[in-house]
Design a protein around this nucleic acid. Structure first.
Lengths: 135, 135
DNA sequence: GCATCGTTAAATTATAATGTTTAATTCGAT
DNA sequence: ATCGAATTAAACATTATAATTTAACGATGC
């Protein structure tokens, strides 16, 4: 990894040629390999990019100065109120309105919330910048 | 990798405990291993995080709609003017002043520039947002 | 139907990264 | 100077990921 990224030289080369508008078969011809190979390589490259994004998000969460644990059986509205309260105590200004924060948590929690009821424990991280993330 | 990141479970665990303020030896005790092991694991974790950052920067460069190639023997000031000119043509507003752009390029180019003289070819990518990156 | 183009799956080989230990080293503070 | 805490290096076994091929599958246009 010459550039010190999570992509291999091959993956970078494929992405570069794709970005230049070349078709998969053209890239395959240039690199002297099969279309299937190029396609698979591009796929892995994009997986790695997604992983890199997830990594930075996780790190932000780990570094978050405040984490709020929502217990099972809590109502979603109560959970949101709790988050506001705790952030307030910590002197952090949440950058979301009540409804949009509720949506954010509902989506981030996935199966851990059904309707407005919290089914299993959720950990919510709040960054210094008021960003809210579900762990 | 449960969270689909470039970090391993072990690395995440070490980072989490570190973020909670535990000392290396406390973490070692908890994880049932040596201090050296924890230290090395944390180091690798941070390397991976840096790689993730570099990856996203590279991807932004690859997706950049404009790339300017600076030839050897060019004067740094001329290079900067060239970048402004080409961005202008492409309807992109460079978000840097002349001097700060010169500094940015000088730093990004490393050994490729000595003083104000470009020694070997430099490729500069310009994003839609006017961000400038040396490839 | 049948080319064309691309994606996906499975299997294999090659390559690279991880976790771990031991020992040596660095760094601050006292 | 030395004590405690942390980092680094070297070496190894283990595990994970990459690249590649072949074959099958899925669209899309004619």
């Amino acid at each position: 990894m010459v550039r010190d990224t999570v992509l291999t030289e091959r993956q970078i080369e494929v992405l570069r040629l794709k970005a230049q508008g070349l078709s998969t078969s053209e890239i395959a011809r240039r690199l002297g390999t099969t279309v299937a190979n190029v396609s698979a390589t591009e796929r892995k490259a994009r997986e790695n990019i997604r992983r890199a994004e997830n990594t930075l998000r996780l790190v932000r969460m780990l570094e978050a100065p405040l984490s709020v644990v929502i217990k099972p059986e809590t109502d979603l509205n109560e959970a949101v109120r709790e988050i506001y309260r705790r952030a307030d105590e910590a002197g952090i200004w949440i950058s979301y309105s009540f409804p949009s924060l509720a949506v954010l948590i509902q989506q981030g929690a996935g199966e851990k919330i059904r309707g407005r009821r919290v089914l299993s424990e959720i950990e919510v991280a709040i960054t210094r910048e008021g960003e809210v993330m579900v762990m």
